[in-house]
């Protein structure tokens, strides 16, 4: 379970103070598929960074299964990211001189998984995101944007994390592959009890999540998820 309590993040920009995340509080049950929508620059990516321990809040706290990230030393935060978090970055952030397979294997290497096991799992994950097998050993810089996005999603799933934070995961994918990725994420949250928080501009993706949030001027408000409402509404 993720608990966010009064989270604030401010930046100094010259004489100005910017607050992209302003007193945000919410809870996510394990296995929830949630989305955050909002305009560009509304603080969506900043909030994701705070939840993933890539950044530290100015105030407030994030508790993961009751454990506070605020007082955690850097070494434990690294372990938290390695064990519990899977990131899908908007810019993919793959290592360009490595192959797709090596990129997916990296988090498993850091987790101390043996080479044969990580190689097998990496191949399986790349097949799940529908990357052609002949492209598994191709260098990242020789793959298209959509293919790189799929490799990034496969890498996020590498260590079977409890929480996946995805920044525009379908932004570079065609409609069909995007649909497939949404299905994959839904299946993960339902079948593997993985909590998934997606930042997206894509209304159709947001509409398929269990909970939908809107971030506006640093303030988070929850919108009811249509599918869930529809499913819960009496006929």
């Amino acid at each position: 379970m993720i608990e966010v309590k009064n989270l604030v993040r401010t930046f100094k920009s010259g004489d100005r103070t910017i607050t992209p995340v302003n007193d945000v509080s919410f809870e996510l049950e394990q296995g929830t598929l949630a989305s955050i929508v909002g305009k560009s620059g509304s603080g969506k990516s900043t909030l994701l960074s705070l939840l993933g321990a890539l950044d530290k809040p100015t105030s407030g706290d994030v508790l993961v299964n009751g454990v506070s990230l605020a007082g955690m030393p850097d070494g434990q935060l690294t372990e938290y990211r390695r064990r519990d978090i899977g990131f899908v970055f908007q810019q993919f952030n793959l290592i360009p001189n490595l192959s797709a397979l090596d990129n997916v294997m990296l988090p498993m290497e850091f987790a101390g998984i043996r080479k044969a096991a990580r190689q097998e799992r990496a191949r399986h994950l790349l097949e799940q995101v529908q990357l052609d097998p002949d492209k598994h050993v191709r260098r990242i810089n020789r793959l298209s944007g959509g293919e790189q996005q799929r490799v990034a999603i496969a890498r996020a799933l590498a260590n079977a994390p409890k929480l996946i934070l995805a920044d525009e995961p379908t932004g570079n994918l065609d409609e069909q592959t995007g649909e497939h990725i949404i299905e994959l994420l839904s299946s993960l949250s339902r079948n593997h009890n993985t909590t998934i928080l997606v930042v997206t501009h894509d209304r159709s993706l947001a509409n398929k999540t269990d909970r939908r949030f809107r971030l506006q001027q640093g303030q988070l408000t929850e919108e009811a998820a249509r599918s869930r409402i529809a499913a819960a509404s009496p006929a």
Binding site: G52, L54, D74, T78, R81, R82, R83, N93, P107, F110
Partner: peptide
Amino acid sequence: RREIGVLKAIGAPN
């Protein structure tokens, strides 16, 4: 630097 940031983000120890 970006690569180092990515490695850290996916759990690489210092």
